[in-house]
Simulated scan of single mutants.
Amino acid sequence: MTVTVEGPAPQQPQLLRSADTPLGRARVARGWSQDKAVRALILLAESWGWQIASESSLKVQFSRWEHDATRPGETYRVLLCAIYRTTPDALGFNRPRTDKPATTSKSLRERVGELEALVERLSGYLGAVEGVQA
């Protein structure tokens, strides 16, 4: 059997990508883009009479949640479990955070000192270059 298509070949849909986190993998497993997941979240919240963030805010939040930059609040956890038809554990909500340790004031002081020393060295180099050009 031969299949023929008139006109130009259709474009292949974009490959679904996500962060390698339980939440990101759950979305891709459903075959959803982030936009589709956001719309599903909004539709479910509306059907339940729940008030949630705007679509544009949710798009930003979705990315942050999937990259584990922040964790969704309880309302969003319930909604996400419902749209993906899974449990909080499966979406990684109950696992410990893997955040980097908080920056201490000592390490900030050390970093500022390093930057100040770098500025002084660069200023010295610049002065030497200007002296050569004069």
Rank of each mutant, 00 (worst) to 15 (best):
A102Q: 11
S47N: 02
P8F: 12
L41M: 11
W32I: 14
V129D: 06
E110W: 10
L79H: 08
A9D: 07
E130N: 04
Q12E: 10
Q34W: 00
R71T: 12
W48D: 12
W65S: 00
V112N: 01
G131S: 11
V132F: 10
V28E: 00
R39Q: 14
P13H: 11
N94D: 15
R27C: 09
A134M: 05
L16P: 01
R109P: 09
L43K: 07
S57D: 12
E114P: 04
S105N: 02
T4C: 13
L15Q: 10
Q61T: 10
V5T: 14
R71M: 03
T70L: 04
V38C: 06
S107H: 08
G24D: 07
D99H: 06
W48E: 14
P88R: 11
A69K: 06
R97Y: 15
S54V: 02
L118H: 07
T2Q: 10
A102K: 07
G127I: 10
L58C: 02
Q61M: 08
T86W: 01
K106M: 05
A90K: 04
V3Y: 12
A45V: 10
I52G: 00
A134P: 03
G127N: 12
L41I: 03
E74I: 09
L79D: 03
L23V: 00
A90I: 10
P10W: 15
M1H: 15
D35S: 13
R77S: 06
A40Q: 05
Q61G: 07
W65N: 00
E55G: 02
G131L: 12
T70S: 01
P22S: 08
A37E: 00
V112C: 09
P10M: 07
T98A: 09
T104R: 02
S107V: 10
P8M: 13
G113T: 09
I42G: 03
L118V: 04
S54Y: 12
A102T: 12
R71L: 07
P13V: 07
R27L: 06
R64L: 14
V38P: 00
R39A: 12
A102Y: 04
T75S: 05
D68W: 04
S63I: 10
A40R: 05
A82G: 04
K36N: 11
A69I: 10
A26F: 00
L122V: 02
L126Y: 04
Q61K: 12
G49Y: 04
S18M: 05
A128L: 07
V78A: 02
K59A: 06
L115S: 11
A134L: 08
R64N: 13
P8V: 13
D89K: 00
V38H: 01
R111W: 15
E6H: 14
R95D: 15
A19W: 01
S63W: 04
S56F: 13
E66I: 13
T104Y: 03
W65L: 07
G92Y: 09
P72G: 02
Q133C: 09
W48Y: 13
R109N: 14
T104K: 01
T75P: 02
L91C: 11
F62P: 01
T75R: 13
G113S: 14
S57Y: 06
Q12F: 14
I42F: 03
A90M: 05
Y76S: 07
P101S: 13
L43T: 09
G113M: 12
F93L: 15
L122F: 12
A40L: 09
W50L: 15
Y76T: 08
